[in-house]
Simulated scan of single mutants.
Amino acid sequence: MTDGHLPYPFGRETTGYAVKDLTSTLHKAEAAGAKVLWGPYISRVRTSAMVQFPGGYVAELHQGGDDR
């Protein structure tokens, strides 16, 4: 249940991207100036993180789950 107000950074992402290696992708993103806002979080089937890229673009990056 939620009152519709999600805590930052959730609800700010405009899309999500499945990646083969989340750890490597996060390192490359940070080297390019991106900031990890949340995560990585490891669940039973997926590892995910929220990233803000230069210019303010926020996206979810995830590994695992249905994209295996």
Rank of each mutant, 00 (worst) to 15 (best):
F53H: 15
D66A: 13
V19Y: 03
V19M: 05
Y8E: 09
H62F: 15
A32N: 06
V45M: 08
S43H: 10
T23W: 06
S24T: 14
A34N: 02
F10H: 09
F53I: 09
E30R: 01
H5T: 15
G39V: 07
K20L: 09
T25P: 05
A32K: 03
Y41G: 00
V58Q: 00
P7E: 09
M50I: 15
M50K: 02
K20N: 12
D67R: 09
K20I: 05
T25Q: 09
E13G: 09
Y41I: 13
V36P: 06
G55Q: 06
Y17E: 12
L61W: 05
T14C: 08
L37F: 03
G64F: 08
D67E: 13
G4E: 09
F53T: 11
D3Q: 11
P9S: 02
S43Q: 11
Q52P: 05
T23K: 11
T23I: 08
P9C: 05
D21M: 06
A59L: 13
D3R: 07
L22R: 03
F53C: 09
E60H: 01
E30P: 01
P40S: 01
H27W: 01
P54H: 00
L61P: 07
T2P: 00
I42D: 15
H5M: 10
I42T: 13
F53Q: 08
F53M: 12
A29T: 04
L61H: 04
G56T: 06
E30H: 02
A59Q: 08
G65R: 03
A29Q: 04
T15H: 14
D67P: 00
Q63P: 06
G11L: 07
G55R: 02
G56F: 03
Y17M: 12
A29S: 04
T2G: 14
L37T: 03
M1G: 13
E60G: 01
Y8P: 08
L26G: 04
E60T: 11
V19R: 00
Y57Q: 14
L22A: 03
A49W: 06
Q63M: 10
G16R: 09
V19A: 03
S43T: 15
V58G: 00
R46Q: 14
G4D: 09
G39W: 03
A31I: 01
A49V: 10
Y17S: 10
G56A: 03
H62W: 12
V45E: 12
G39S: 04
P40Y: 02
T25V: 10
R68P: 11
R12H: 15
D21E: 13
V58W: 01
L22S: 04
